[in-house]
Every structure is written in C-alpha cells, then in structure tokens.
C-alpha cells in the first residue's frame, strides 16, 4: 500500500530550520542539530536551501546493509522502520544511504531515520511557508524529481535509487 511521503519544495524554503528544531524536540526532547531526522542544507552560494530526509526507498540500501537485520519495511506499508533494540550503532546504514539521510542519534548511539511521526509529521505542521508537504507519491514534484534523475543518470540509476514515485 502506498503511504504518504514527505516532500520538500526548495523554491519555497527560506532555510529557517524550524523543521529541524521541532523534529529534534519531538524525538529526543532536546535540540541538537545532529538529532534531527531532517536536515536542511543551507547553501548561500547557490541561493538555496535543500532538505535531506529519508525518502523511504522501495529497495532500500540500508535494509540490505544492516549487519543486524534491524531495518525492515513496516508490514502493510512501505515505510522503513527500525528495531532499535538490536541496533549496535555500527553506522553501516549511514554509510550506505545514498541520500545521506540516515541520522546517528548520539543519545541512543543508534542510527535512526525519519519515521514520519506516525503519520502526522511535525515539521510539516510547523513549516511556515508550506515548503514541506506530506502527500501521496506520484504527484508533480515526484515526477519532476524522477525526470531529473533520468536525464542525468539514465535509467540505471533509477533502479538503484528506486525513486519513490516510479509507478505514480
């Protein structure tokens, strides 16, 4: 079943970093920019801000890399979830993630990814410019994203990256 995903529209983003703050506060009760599951890359030179966050890949490299088999797809959906009890914090999935979206949680000493706040992402709620949206895959932004990758890398990359909206 297709789940809603998080999308970021770089042209609307002001780079205020609110999403990072609320994410860290919600998940760890403290603010630490390394704890946030979403990262805003602030790039003044290119006049833009980009968000890096778990894309919920269909065939996720992190799942394949995990030494402890702790990462799996939530049954009945395609959200990547983790069993943190068995995680040994080896950070292999952090290395494997082609999107740089796995986050090492320094409190638990384990790697985490965006869990979409159980279906009600706080970052979306707090985003002042609606640059972050929570929507079904296959919308306009998703198609554009695919197209861009297709143009640049050819189809082969799509196979690896498994962009979320491939069918949509």
């Amino acid at each position: 079943m297709k789940q809603k995903r998080l999308y970021h529209n770089a042209s609307l983003c002001d780079g205020c970093g609110l999403c990072q703050l609320v994410c860290a506060l919600e998940h760890c009760g403290q603010w630490n920019h390394y704890q946030s599951r979403i990262k805003i890359v602030n790039d003044m030179e290119r006049e833009a801000f980009y968000a890096v966050c778990c894309t919920q890949c269909e065939e996720a490299p992190c799942i394949l890399t995990c030494l402890m088999n702790t990462i799996y797809k939530q049954p009945g959906s395609d959200i990547t979830v983790r069993d943190l009890y068995h995680c040994i914090g080896c950070r292999a999935c952090e290395l494997a993630c082609p999107f740089d979206a796995a986050v090492f949680d320094v409190i638990q000493e384990k790697v985490v990814n965006c869990d979409l706040c159980g279906g009600r992402p706080l970052c979306v709620e707090y985003c002042p410019n609606h640059a972050l949206t929570y929507d079904y895959p296959g919308d306009q932004a998703d198609k554009k994203r695919n197209q861009a990758a297709l143009q640049r890398f050819g189809t082969s990359l799509l196979e690896v990256f498994k962009f979320s909206g491939k069918e949509g």
Binding site: S11, V52, F99, D100, L157
Partner: peptide, 24 residues
Amino acid sequence: IAPSEIKRIINSPALLKNMPWMLA
C-alpha cells in the same frame, strides 16, 4: 558516474533542487 557529471549537478541549482543530498 563521471566526476565531471557530479560537478555539473553540484554547480547547477536547478538540478540540485531534485538531488539535494549531492550537495554534501
């Protein structure tokens, strides 16, 4: 993928928008 291609993507804000992780 060729390094020159990576460089081109990094230097183009329009392309980067779709591949923000490349900035890292």
